[in-house]
Design a protein around this nucleic acid. Sequence first.
DNA 1: TTATTGCGGACCATTTTAGTCCTCTTTAAA
DNA 2: TTTAAAGAGGACTAAAATGGTCCGCAATAA
Lengths: 158, 158
Amino acid sequence: MLRISKLSDYAIIILGHMAKAPSQTFAANDLAGSAGIGGPTVSKVLKALVKAHVVRSTRGAKGGYQLAQTPEKTSIASIIAALEGPIALTECSIDLNHCEQASSCNVRGNWSVINRAIRTALEAVTLADMAITPTMGSDGFHIPVKDITFQPRRNPEQ
Amino acid sequence: MLRISKLSDYAIIILGHMAKAPSQTFAANDLAGSAGIGGPTVSKVLKALVKAHVVRSTRGAKGGYQLAQTPEKTSIASIIAALEGPIALTECSIDLNHCEQASSCNVRGNWSVINRAIRTALEAVTLADMAITPTMGSDGFHIPVKDITFQPRRNPEQ
DNA sequence: TTATTGCGGACCATTTTAGTCCTCTTTAAA
DNA sequence: TTTAAAGAGGACTAAAATGGTCCGCAATAA
Ligand code: SF4
Ligand code: SF4
C-alpha cells in the first residue's frame, strides 16, 4: 500500500513534539511518555535519527536529544531516509545494478522521473509544516510547499 | 524506503508490454516470456489485475488477457492499488480507527494532505506515459502530467 | 562515587512478501 | 465428442522485513 514504516511515523510524531521547543533537550523517556510510544522503541528511533544527523544527543545525566536543525530546515524526506534509507519507489531508483531485469526493463527511466518527483515533494515538506494544526480556515488548510511536477530536467537516472 | 512491491513493479512492466497492442489478447505465458518474469508469478499478478478490473480475461483455448481500458485511461495508481490496496502512506490514511495513537496524534491531518497529494500524482500518470521511452530530446524527457501540490481543498480526512 | 542518560548491537516474534503448485472450469478446435 | 490450451481460485512455503525488547558499555552531572 506504499506505506512508510511505523518507525518513520513514530519519528515524525516524536520530532513533532520536539519542534514545539526547538532548542530544548528531551530525555528519550519523557518523549516516550508524551508520544504514547514504548520507551525502548522511542530510543531506537532516536538513535537512528542521531546517525542521520536529524537530532543531536547529549550523554550522561541531564542529557537527552535536541533538534539538530530548526523545524523549518528538517524535511520529512530526511526523517524517512533516516529510518528507512533514501526514498526509492523501485529497486532501480536506489541502485541500478541491483535489479535483475534492469537491462530489459523499459519503464525504468520513467520510474526515475516519478521517484524524483515524490522525493522532491517530500523534501519540500518540513517538520514546521507538520506541526501546523490543520484548521478549516477561509482558504482551506494547507501545507505550504512549492509545486511539484513530473517534469524533470535533462538528467536521466537518479 | 517507501517501496512499491515487486509484484506491482512486475504489473507495470507486464502492462507496459500489453500497452503496445492495447486490444490484443495475450496469454500469461507469452507475457512471462517477453517480460523475463516467472510464469506462475506473472499469472498471479494478472489474476490480481483482473480482480481490480485493470485487465479482462478470456478463458479457454486462445484465451488470455487484454487491457480493460486504453493505456491512457489506466493509471499507475490503479495498478498499484490492484496489487497492494489503496495508496496510503500512513495507517490512518486508509482507516482512521485502525491506529492506536490516532486520538493523541497531532500530525494526522497533515499526513492526510501529503497522502492525497501523492495519490493524486500517481493517479495522473498513465500506462501510456510509462510506455514513452524517455529520450534526451531538446526539451528534456518528461512524463506529461498536471502539476501536483500539497494544497488540497477544504475536505479533511481522506 | 553514583545515578542518569545515551550507544551499540544482539535478539526474537510476527508479519509481509514472493514465488510455486495443484485442482477445477472454460472454451476452441480437431 | 474429445482433447488441449488457457484462466480461476486458493493453499502452501521460504525468505525477508518489521517491530519491539533487552543487555552491557560509555559518558557526564551532581
Ligand atoms: S523498474 Fe525495471 S529496472 Fe527498475 S526495478 Fe522495476 S524492473 Fe527493475
Ligand atoms: S499519523 Fe498519527 S494517526 Fe496516522 S498512523 Fe501515524 S500515528 Fe496513527
